[in-house]
Computed example of a mutant assay.
Amino acid sequence: MNPDGVGLGASATLPGSAPRPSAGGEAATVNAQAPRAPICDPTGRVCRDQFTVTGPLDGRGPITLSDLVNFRPLVQVHRVQPDGWSVVGLHTNFYTATVAQVQDDLLLGIPASVRFTPVTYRWDYGDGESATTQTGGRSWSDLGLDEFDRTPTSHVYTRSGTFDITLAVDFGAEYRFGEAGWIPIAGSVSVPANSLTVSASEAKTVLVGRECTARALLGC
């Protein structure tokens, strides 16, 4: 195993013979009756012949995030409650339904699966404040809360104004060849979500042309 990253613990089965050790110390089963020159990816880290690859073979280095050129995680729509507006001093709720996802494509020229799992959510609320959470949040109704209640991803604006809110989701990645176990890849992939714009107003201003919930909240 490479001390600087996750090793490519792997094996492969060719039609035939006894195990032979790889450069990384793993064993690969090879057919002595029909030896074939292996076909390697450009980096030489993963080689294959007519076999099912269950992991890397030669131990020249781990799979890294830069190898995932055919894979990219998707971030679901970033939403805000109330929709596009806020009351100064009250909680505005932000959330996204981004979940773990598995993609199938070629990894170093070999069919593989990559699983992306969201691990952190980095929110910039546009007013100089930011937050990092381990949850993407949920709507007030899904959480069983009333409007303007505090949530793990809500934010309180302390002044009126129009604010641009951004979200970046950091994903951990794992890969596997065939039906082998998942192997983690060091580091994370950051993907931006759509940006939002929120207009925050003082309570008296909100009474004009806003939803009934704001009126009820303010006792009108």
Rank of each mutant, 00 (worst) to 15 (best):
H155Q: 10
W140M: 11
R79A: 03
A12I: 05
S130E: 05
T96G: 04
E202C: 02
S139C: 15
T132C: 01
G161C: 04
C40E: 08
M1D: 04
A173E: 10
R150L: 03
S190A: 02
R79E: 12
H78T: 09
S154D: 13
T64L: 10
A18G: 12
S22T: 04
T135Q: 12
T162S: 05
R138Q: 15
N31A: 06
P19F: 12
S160A: 03
P82M: 05
G25T: 01
L167R: 04
P184E: 14
Q50S: 00
N194S: 10
P15I: 00
S199E: 01
H78A: 15
V87C: 03
S188H: 00
Y175N: 08
V69D: 05
V206G: 04
T205G: 15
P42C: 06
G144R: 11
S199A: 14
N194L: 11
T135N: 14
P19D: 14
E179F: 01
G161H: 10
T213G: 03
V75W: 05
T162W: 09
G7Y: 07
A186T: 15
T205P: 09
N70A: 12
T151Q: 15
C212G: 07
R210Y: 13
L207R: 10
Y121M: 04
A34T: 02
D49C: 13
G9D: 14
A186D: 05
E174I: 06
G55I: 07
V88N: 01
A173R: 08
V169W: 02
R45K: 04
I185A: 08
L57Q: 04
L167I: 02
V30R: 11
N194I: 12
F148H: 08
D170R: 02
S188R: 00
A193L: 09
L143K: 03
F116T: 14
T96M: 00
A10V: 04
A186K: 06
G126M: 15
T197G: 00
A193G: 07
A34V: 03
I185H: 13
P184K: 06
L167H: 06
I110Y: 07
